[in-house]
């Protein structure tokens, strides 16, 4: 049995949550709990108080057009939503296992800011914006400006992530690849998101993002630049060497991550070139 002496505030509305948050900026925020419970068991989280958002049902679910996702949207919600791009639904299906998918939330994944977070490259390549709220008001922060360093985000102490907004072009030629330690219950060694706009056979927009290869999820700007202005060129994958800074850790090696990052980008581009 896992016990924590920390008092828990169970918010039922966003207004309640924000008001409580304003006076408890050091409280640990609980959404689905699939990370927090592990941290508690490991002893790496010792919350003094907990803000439980799970009851804020207004933060859960995906709009009918698939453009707006509440922060408490679970992976299962994503898997089942017909308007979401297939690559995003695939991404949700690679998180943990069905039990985790039923409970884990996109908001938790984004705010925990693990470099290995399965969904994070996808928010980068879809040009998503994160809606952050506090009693002071609401602001929109692009995904590309949200992860500031290892497990550091742009959230102010009194702010909560409330919604994710996808760009209208999010579903165009969107690609997701996860290289994990196994086929379920796996933390990624390399995770790739990609998106291309191709007009008249020429790449006019490229988004490439990776996880687990740097302290934060990152855009592969060198690869993106190498892709623009010409037909899809799989050789652009080699430029990823200048974009990433992988390390040796308990799950894999820097060398493997370098090779595999280039390989999975090339494999994606070869598929796009042949399409």
């Amino acid at each position: 049995m896992l016990t924590s002496p920390a008092p828990v505030h169970r918010a039922r509305t966003l207004a309640d949550a924000l008001a409580w948050r304003a006076t408890h900026p050091h409280a640990t925020v609980l959404a689905g709990g699939t990370d927090l419970m592990v941290f508690l068991e490991l002893g790496s989280a010792n919350p003094t108080s907990v803000l439980d958002l799970w009851g804020c049902t207004e933060l859960r679910g995906i709009s009918e057009d698939g453009r707006t996702l509440g922060a408490l949207t679970t992976w299962t919600d994503m898997v089942r939503h017909p308007a979401l791009p297939v690559a995003l639904r695939d991404c949700a299906r690679t998180v943990g296992a069905p039990q985790i998918q039923n409970r884990g939330t996109i908001g938790g994944n984004i705010v925990n800011a693990s470099p290995a977070g399965d969904s994070l490259p996808m928010w980068l390549v879809t040009d998503a914006t994160f809606e952050l709220a506090s009693v002071r008001g609401v602001r929109q922060v692009p995904a590309s400006a949200f992860w500031l360093g290892y497990r550091k985000t742009a959230l102010a102490p009194d702010e909560l992530l409330v919604r994710v907004h996808l760009h209208p072009h999010a579903g165009d030629r969107l690609h997701y690849r996860k290289v994990g330690t196994r086929l379920a219950q796996a933390i990624s060694k390399v995770v790739l998101g990609g998106r291309l706009r191709i007009e008249g056979g020429i790449v006019t927009e490229a988004r490439v993002a990776l996880g687990s290869v740097a302290p934060t999820p990152i855009r592969a700007h060198h690869v993106e630049a190498a892709l623009l202005g010409k037909p899809v060129d799989p050789a652009a994958a080699a430029a990823v060497a200048d974009d990433i800074a992988p390390i040796d850790d308990i799950r894999s090696t820097a060398a493997y991550r370098r090779t595999v990052s280039a390989n999975v980008i090339r494999a994606w581009l070869e598929g796009e070139a042949a399409a």
């Binding site: 296992a97 196994r182 219950q185």
Partner: peptide, 16 residues
């Protein structure tokens, strides 16, 4: 043993 967790000592799952 450094990888003293089920998340990093990797046994196969049913999916594998």
């Amino acid at each position: 043993m450094r990888n003293d967790r089920l998340t990093n000592y990797i046994i196969p799952t049913a999916a594998d």
